[in-house]
Design a protein around this nucleic acid. Sequence first.
DNA 1: CTCCTATATAGGAATCGTACGATATACTGC
DNA 2: GCAGTATATCGTACGATTCCTATATAGGAG
Lengths: 100, 100
Amino acid sequence: MQTQAAVPAAARQFKALGHPVRLGIAVRLAREPETCACDFADVFQVSQPTVSQHLRVLREAGLVRTVRRGTQICYSLDDAAITQVRALLETLDREVPLGR
Amino acid sequence: MQTQAAVPAAARQFKALGHPVRLGIAVRLAREPETCACDFADVFQVSQPTVSQHLRVLREAGLVRTVRRGTQICYSLDDAAITQVRALLETLDREVPLGR
DNA sequence: CTCCTATATAGGAATCGTACGATATACTGC
DNA sequence: GCAGTATATCGTACGATTCCTATATAGGAG
């Protein structure tokens, strides 16, 4: 039973996803892994430092990984972390299906 | 494809779950539906008004429903909302399983 | 109506989050 | 080395969040 001790860590992850720009970044990374940081500023209409800061929040929550590719840095979702968040959310749900 | 427009609404829900007390309340409500508000103050070691405020955040995010039962007010998770959050999270996950 | 319990709201203090412009760091290519 | 591009960090302003105490509101019992 993870349910008790996992709460603070999971709360940090939910918090990280709790901003439209960061959730938007996550959604985009799901569709297009290894997206480089520079692409987000245009898409979300915020400055480069703001993007960088949001990426840092996601990184510190363990939700994304990075790979340097020459001068640019490419971000991807950390599948293990996403699965973990999903797992907690499933414990909240009594309408279990949705399995796709 | 909900993915685009659903982001701001979902971000609000993630944000609501992004606090240890509120996530803790949600976890507890999953195990014990119709828990009355007064029970939470003891469990989470915060004052009654603080609990009330956290419950308000959850309510305004659409994550919980309330039922008045005499002088006390009982909270339950809104299963539809939880399922919705889960759905968005599944679009982030490539390791689909976990279906229980 | 009065008293008691349960919950919500108001007000305020401390802290955190979010955005920006300016600047620093890191890599590439010459 | 220097110049250019890509990211990160610094500094800072402003608004939001979180928690408390004090107070208001709502319902039940007498």
